[in-house]
Amino acid sequence: MIKLLSSKKFIIVLIFSLVIAPQLVVAFTIINTSTIRISAQVGTGTPSTGGGGGGGGGGSSSVSTVPISMPTTVNFSGMAYPSSKVTILRNGSVVITTVADQQARFSTSINNLDTGTYNFSVYGEDSNGVKSLSFSFPVYVTAGTTVNIGGIFLSPTINIDKSEVKQGDDLIVYGQTIPNTNLNIVFHSDQEILKNTKTDITGLYKYTMDTTPLEYGDHIVKSKTIVNEEVGAVSPELPFIVGLVSKKKDNTVTGCGTLRGDLNCDKRVNLVDFSVMAYWYKRVSPPAKVDLNGDGKISLVDFSIMAFSWTG
């Protein structure tokens, strides 16, 4: 045992365990928000002492003495999908919607806020109505300041044509992101398989995967937008099965849409759906449609699943 504890290999493993493993755990739980820049300046349209305020210059800030009662503004800018609808939520309620231009750029502002903490979220919808993942920004806003949240890069949307594919048949992976960009399609199988494709002028992409090299069983696919040879954004993961028959993917979760938590089938997850679930909280025998994790009761877990898909 003493010999084992003093061996070189053991010491290397020990160091790896103590230093690298903790980093892995943290890395698994943090979303990639590296492109987002947040900055603030006091007042608007007044000379400032620094240079980092407007446009979100890499997180720098500038402070200057300004007259009282300047407007309070939060500016949002980033990339979505060409001509797509972008929605901004404030504390869970839709506060503004805008449309991205043909290059997928969007920018919008919210004014007249009081001092306080606001949880802003941003999501987009592609040309097929598929929603991106939501980006969330809990920001402390001080009256009379301008906050710039720039560099928002909405995740690519993703869809597949089959939920189960017969080994050797084609699986079509498609979605939308920014136009004329490279994209990685990643298949998580026993070994990770990486395929490259490119979006067209409208930001749409489509990749036909020959499933011959995929093993029988469960797999996951996701897409990654590549900008300047770096990963710009990552789509949600979609599961599929490689089996003996091919089955067309049913794009409904609850029989009325793709959003988990859309209990009244209006293609939104908002206060109405929350109220339906709140009605069944701690009541016996909730409807299967409301009990999102199917454990026979409505608990915080069901509300959490709903909160993930929240559209306002």
Partner: peptide, 25 residues
């Protein structure tokens, strides 16, 4: 108490010091 934060929360951002996320009340 029991409640939700739609779309999630990972710390309050002070825009004057965006790298340092603060706890949320």
């Amino acid at each position: 108490f029991s409640g939700i934060i739609p779309n999630g929360f990972s710390g309050v951002i002070d825009p004057f010091n965006p790298d340092n996320k603060l706890p949320g009340l």
